[in-house]
């Protein structure tokens, strides 16, 4: 009985000492905006702690990583400034093109306006424009067509006052088909330009 009390007292003392001298680092997993399954492996002195649900947290002490459940309040109090400085997430758009040309399909007008609106929201932006084709024609032909499509989108952005230096335009030809087809098959969904707005 006496021994047990002694062990408990020692454990309590140890916990206080550890908290006093060594708790300098902490890691908190946050809820996912995209609904993905979050997971973070924290490795210290060869020991791993897996954080695998929102607000799962660990405080790294000299001894062992100590796991706890954090709160939204703690996140706001300690990380408010870092989170306030978080840039806007990348936004993604796809525009489709008429066969063999760098003309947008009529259906793409709405996506185009949505892209312009997103670009306008961002004071500091970099934009990546990637042109693709379907599998009709040679590699050389499609590389040129894909690049022409990307450059057409860059020109559309320029008309809205977006400087060309903010935009990287590249063509990938028929190498990355969105809808896999045999070579030579015309597929409207593959005739596209993908745009990343950051």
């Amino acid at each position: 009985m006496r021994t047990e009390r002694g062990v408990r007292a020692f454990a309590a003392l140890l916990a206080v000492l550890l908290a006093a001298c060594a708790t300098q680092e902490r890691v908190i997993l946050l809820p996912e905006a995209g609904g993905r399954t979050p997971s973070l492996a924290v490795s210290q002195h060869g020991r791993d702690v897996l954080l695998d649900h929102p607000y799962a947290a660990t405080e790294l002490t000299v001894a062992d990583p100590w796991r706890y459940e954090a709160t939204p309040q703690e996140v706001r109090d300690t990380f408010g400034a870092a989170l306030a400085a978080q840039p806007a997430r990348a936004a993604f758009f796809t525009l489709n093109f008429v066969e063999g040309s760098d003309q947008l399909t009529a259906d793409s007008a709405q996506a185009l306006e949505a892209m312009f609106a997103e670009v306008a929201k961002r004071p500091v932006r970099d934009i990546v424009v990637i042109g693709h084709t379907d599998a009709v024609g040679s590699d050389e032909y499609n590389d040129q067509l894909a690049l022409k499509r990307a450059q057409a989108v860059r020109a559309m952005l320029a008309t809205r006052g977006i400087p060309e230096q903010d935009i990287v335009a590249v063509g990938r030809g028929k190498r990355e088909l969105l809808v896999p087809t045999p070579d030579g098959v015309a597929e409207p969904r593959n005739r596209r330009v993908e745009i990343v707005v950051r």
Binding site: E25, P31, L40, L83
Partner: peptide, 18 residues
């Protein structure tokens, strides 16, 4: 961090080094 390595697997998180 000075004492640990965080392996990131599709995640949002915060870290503090005091």
């Amino acid at each position: 961090t000075p004492s640990a390595i965080l392996g990131v697997r599709g995640t949002e998180f915060v870290v503090r080094v005091g």
